[in-house]
């Protein structure tokens, strides 16, 4: 199983602030990689660098053996990489179905085919009953599901999920966990940012920990739990 994604010495500077500094790791195909770290650690920034939302200041992102730096996000998406936003961004004035269809248009020019793909993905996230609702009117839990359906509709090989469980109640979180595991069964590689430790431990095959922009640790969930540095970063050194 080869690496679908390679991060090589990626740094991102905002003025003097190093939001990411010299981060390197690889992501094997079909795996779920957990990305954790305290607030402001640079997780979202790393996603932005990977998806081409902005290019990294230094280093390289290699997706399927191809160097991505500076590639436009729409092209990145066509290559098979898609992400959700920490702060969900549905197209509020469109219907739920239309939102997902926009994603599907990444793969087809036919509105009819796009509609079929969209309905299928809405079923996957169990939102098909709300297909005709305005996206802006959905409660937060369903908006997150919509976000997932929308990226799934782009038929990605690598999916980057930024805190899809944030703000959800336990029942909703459980639904999302099942959803992530379902997606894995379809062979889609995933990278998941999540603050809920229990959840991340359950779903991840490997975990990378970021702190102050740097990679603090990397390993299996068991290794991470056992890692003293991680515990300190999260809970403070007095622990």
């Amino acid at each position: 199983m080869g690496a679908i994604l390679e991060i090589k010495h990626v740094s991102k500077f905002f003025g003097g602030l190093a939001a990411n500094s010299d981060v390197s790791f690889e992501l094997a195909e079909g795996m779920i990689m957990g990305l954790i770290g305290p607030n402001g650690a640079g997780k979202t920034t790393l996603f932005n660098c990977i998806t081409g939302y902005y290019p990294p200041s230094r280093g390289e992102v290699i997706f399927k053996g191809r160097k991505m730096n500076g590639l436009e996000p729409n092209k990145v998406c066509k290559l098979g990489m898609a992400r959700t936003w920490q702060k969900v961004r549905p197209l509020a004035k469109m219907s739920v179905l239309d939102n997902v269809m926009v994603g599907a248009l990444c793969r087809t020019n036919s509105l009819k085919v796009a509609r079929d793909i969209a309905l299928e993905q809405l079923k996957v996230v169990r939102l098909d009953r709300k297909a005709d609702f305005l996206a802006g009117g959905l409660p937060i839990g369903e908006r997150k599901k919509l976000e997932v359906a929308r990226v799934l509709a782009t038929r990605p090989q690598l999916l980057l999920l930024d805190e899809v469980m944030g703000g959800l109640n336990p029942a909703e979180s459980e639904e999302i966990i099942q959803l992530i595991l379902d997606i894995k069964k379809h062979g889609i590689t995933q990278m998941v940012i999540e603050h809920d430790m229990k959840a991340i431990m359950r779903i991840s095959d490997r975990i990378v920990v970021l702190n102050s922009g740097e990679k603090l640790a990397e390993g299996s969930p068991e290794e991470i739990v056992a890692n003293q540095a991680v515990v300190e970063a999260y809970l403070g050194s007095e622990h």
Partner: peptide, 11 residues
């Protein structure tokens, strides 16, 4: 509606 979100969805 959202230039960036649209772009990230392949538009």
């Amino acid at each position: 509606q959202d230039r960036e979100a649209a772009q990230l969805m392949g538009i």
